[in-house]
Nucleic acid binder design. Structure first.
Lengths: 219, 219
DNA sequence: TTTTATTTTTAGACACACCTAAACTTTTAT
DNA sequence: ATAAAAGTTTAGGTGTGTCTAAAAATAAAA
């Protein structure tokens, strides 16, 4: 049906836009997919033709209805495979991702139905993220203020509630933007600040004022 | 490591040559891979450069040591996945192949080790074909005279013990050559002839004289 | 508001894996 | 042994997904 590359683009748009509604920039996609903006432009043009994506030059892309359905199917497959790897093959948290990333592209409706039964129709994957149902229902992972995350929980930045340049410049400096992956490494109890890892490489400590202004969705 | 296309070529050569030793023709590969001879020539040249295959123009290809090792790994993966699909996901005989064909290309040593344990280190797949061990040991599926196959068993022609043109022409007429897939549909008891399906589409009845001259390996 | 900087797109290439059509080998038949 | 047939390879081209470098559009700063 769709190529692996197409599926990866669709999934990336879904994640970065928080379910595909709002527009996603070329650069953000390029970063998430570890490719170049030029390649993204190309692909967006193609996905637009196939009506999986609504795309206007220089103004980002968002998923069509069809695109969203496709995204949910891929995410369903990914999360079911992650569940399988952890529950049945004793994989740990950090070993699952790359493998599930490959398995999610295996094409077979029957396979996924049977896998789902075999696992006992799980509602969430090993990270607690909801598994979309066969007909594409996703128990909405709603936005969450960063300050409400517990230690070890992760999120992807989906909104920032403060447009002051100084604040945005600060976020920029520490490397936070829409789509950035955050994970709480530690909680400093006396002032409610959090040590947060940014895109899985560096880490910073964010004050509680800052934490209140950043919204995340499940990664 | 290797692309899906490369892996499929290697597997095909392994199967058609009966473990990779003897040379395989361009056309035979093209048929098995459902592609054109010209494409096969191209790929054989590349695989030769990568030293997975020994290939001389106009004289077919055979696997190098490395090529054989790769082939065995792919076959191991394929057969483990088939076992999984049948034993754990209740797939039937005919539903497994296409899916296993995709899963065999998933790259992860750990995955295969764990899958193997999960299945209890099976020695054979659901069709009774041996599963190569982790270090590439394959309990040799040795050649078998066609007459020794039971009803429903299948084999791939690997040798024909009679070089008389009349005999070969006969085989040609019914569509049997090296690499042809045969399956026993029925046994006619009174003269020991067998009804055999040829490449899964047509069927013929072969006399016991003929059956004694055709050797097959597991498909 | 005009300049500067950033983001995004186009243009032109490349690797992979495939194709058709034509040329070349090898095999088979006369 | 030579001509015809069959099998195989080369040449040139296609689609996908990527790249770099240069041009165009948008956003930010002076």
């Amino acid at each position: 049906m769709y190529s692996t590359a197409e599926e990866n683009y669709i999934k990336a748009i879904f994640k970065l836009s928080g379910s595909g509604a709002q527009a996603v920039s070329t650069t953000a996609l390029a970063e998430m997919l570890e490719t170049k903006p030029a390649s993204v432009s190309d692909m967006l043009r193609k996905l637009n033709l196939k009506e999986l994506v609504r795309y206007e030059k220089y103004h980002g892309a968002q998923l069509t209805e069809t695109g969203q359905r496709v995204a949910l199917k891929i995410i369903r497959k990914h999360r079911l495979w992650e569940t399988f790897l952890v529950q049945k093959l004793n994989f740990t948290w950090d070993e699952v991702h790359d493998v599930a990333e490959q398995m999610e592209h295996v094409k077979s409706e029957l396979l996924i139905q049977r896998l789902d039964s075999f696992l006992g129709h799980p509602k969430v994957d090993p990270h607690g993220d909801p598994i979309p149902s066969e007909d594409g229902e996703l128990r909405l992972t709603k936005q969450q203020v960063l300050s409400t995350l517990e230690v070890d929980q992760a999120g992807v930045v989906c909104r920032v509630q403060d447009a002051q340049p100084a604040f945005l410049q600060y976020l920029n400096k520490v490397g936070i933007q829409i789509g950035t992956h955050l994970q709480v490494l530690d909680k400093i109890a006396y002032d409610n600040s959090l040590e947060i890892s940014i895109d899985k490489n560096k880490s910073v400590i964010l004050s509680s004022e800052v934490l209140e202004k950043i919204f995340v969705i499940n990664p």
